Amino acid sequence: MTASHDWPELRDLYGAAPVPDLDTCHFFHVHIDERGTSVTFGFETSQLPEHPKPEWTASAYNTLRFWVEFTGVTDLRVSGILAEAERAVRITGGGPDRLEVSVTSETRSIAFSASASRVTYTRVYLRGSL
């Protein structure tokens, strides 16, 4: 189990409620920017925030999407990429001012070291039943 890192952008939305565990979020997006040495992940959750943004209250919604950008990426290792239901997300301290990040499943993985992370964008929408 990996709780979302201490991102103020999510903490402001969730307040005292627990921030979604990344292992329970749908992992739907990976963008590797070799020029900016960054990796961005996209997650979505049906665990809605206690303190939504005012502009969100005008419409019905049941899903929150958020994008996390990791900067200062080094030691990037990729072995296939596919959104799979059974995968584990890990973000741990990797030494002074470093994070060790990995998303792994039985057949695919992405792992790297990063100097920082932040939530770059959040949005809500109404997701239909599958």
Rank of each mutant, 00 (worst) to 15 (best):
Phe66His: 03
Phe112Thr: 01
Val89Cys: 06
Arg90Ser: 10
Tyr125Arg: 12
Ala17Pro: 00
Ser79Met: 09
Glu34Lys: 12
Ser4Gln: 02
Thr104Glu: 15
Gly36Asn: 14
Ile81Gln: 12
Ala3Gln: 11
Leu126Ile: 02
Glu69Met: 11
Thr104Phe: 02
Asp21Asn: 12
Pro20Cys: 00
Thr74Phe: 03
Ala85Cys: 11
Arg87Met: 12
Pro20Asp: 02
Ala16Val: 12
Arg98Cys: 03
Arg65Lys: 15
Gly128Ala: 14
Thr2Pro: 01
Ser59Leu: 10
Lys53His: 12
His26Thr: 14
Thr120Cys: 10
Glu9Asp: 11
Thr2Ser: 15
Pro49Thr: 09
Cys25Tyr: 06
Thr74Lys: 04
Gly95Lys: 08
Ile32His: 13
Glu86Ile: 07
Ser113Asn: 03
His26Trp: 15
His51Ala: 04
Ser129Ala: 14
Arg87Trp: 10
Val89His: 10
Ser79Tyr: 08
Asp21His: 06
Asp12Thr: 06
Trp56Phe: 12
Val103Pro: 02
Thr63Ser: 14
Tyr125Val: 08
Phe43Ile: 07
Gly95Trp: 01
Leu130Val: 12
Asp21Ser: 07
Thr45Ile: 11
Ala88Gly: 05
Leu10Glu: 01
Asp33Ile: 01
Asp21Trp: 05
Ala60Phe: 09
Glu34Ile: 11
Val30Asp: 01
Asp97Met: 09
Thr107Met: 07
Val103Gln: 06
Val68Trp: 06
Pro20Thr: 02
Arg90Gln: 04
Tyr125Phe: 15
Glu44Met: 14
His26Leu: 15
Thr45Cys: 10
Thr104Val: 15
Val73Thr: 08
Trp56His: 13
Ala85Gly: 14
Leu22Tyr: 00
Gln47His: 12
Thr71Val: 07
Thr24Gly: 02
Arg65Pro: 00
Pro20His: 01
Ser59Tyr: 07
Phe28Gly: 08
Phe66Ile: 02
Trp7Gly: 05
Ala116Ile: 00
Asp23Ser: 04
Pro52Gln: 07
Ser38Tyr: 03
Ser46Asp: 14
Gly80Gln: 09
Pro20Asn: 01
Ala111Val: 08
Arg11Asn: 08
Gly80Arg: 10
Glu84Ala: 14
Ala60Ser: 13
Ser105Thr: 15
Val89Asp: 07
Arg11Met: 09
